[in-house]
Design a protein around this nucleic acid. Structure first.
Length: 69
DNA sequence: CTAGGGTTAGAC
DNA sequence: GTCTAACCCTAG
């Protein structure tokens, strides 16, 4: 059992857009309800997309583009 | 549940 | 060989 890591699937524009919209719509008390955001765009987000993935994507995006924060 | 860190894989 | 994007694990 070589514990295969999931394949590297690039994020689509739909996911990034839904993430941005969700964060701009939600984002209360400086907290990020990724759970709600994920549910909000569950129709666009992949089936394996987790709150950790969303947070990581947002973090990476912010690191490379401080304009989003 | 959210935040941060470390590692792997693909592109340059 | 290096950098960016993504995935997994741990800590608060």
């Amino acid at each position: 059992m070589p514990q295969l890591r999931r394949k590297k699937v690039p994020w689509t524009v739909q996911e990034e857009e839904m993430l941005k919209k969700g964060v701009q719509k939600f984002s209360s008390d400086g907290k990020f309800p990724w759970k709600d955001i994920l549910e909000y765009g569950s129709s666009v987000f992949f089936s394996d997309r987790t709150t950790i993935d969303v947070k990581d994507k947002w973090r990476n995006m912010c690191k490379v583009s401080p304009k989003f924060k």
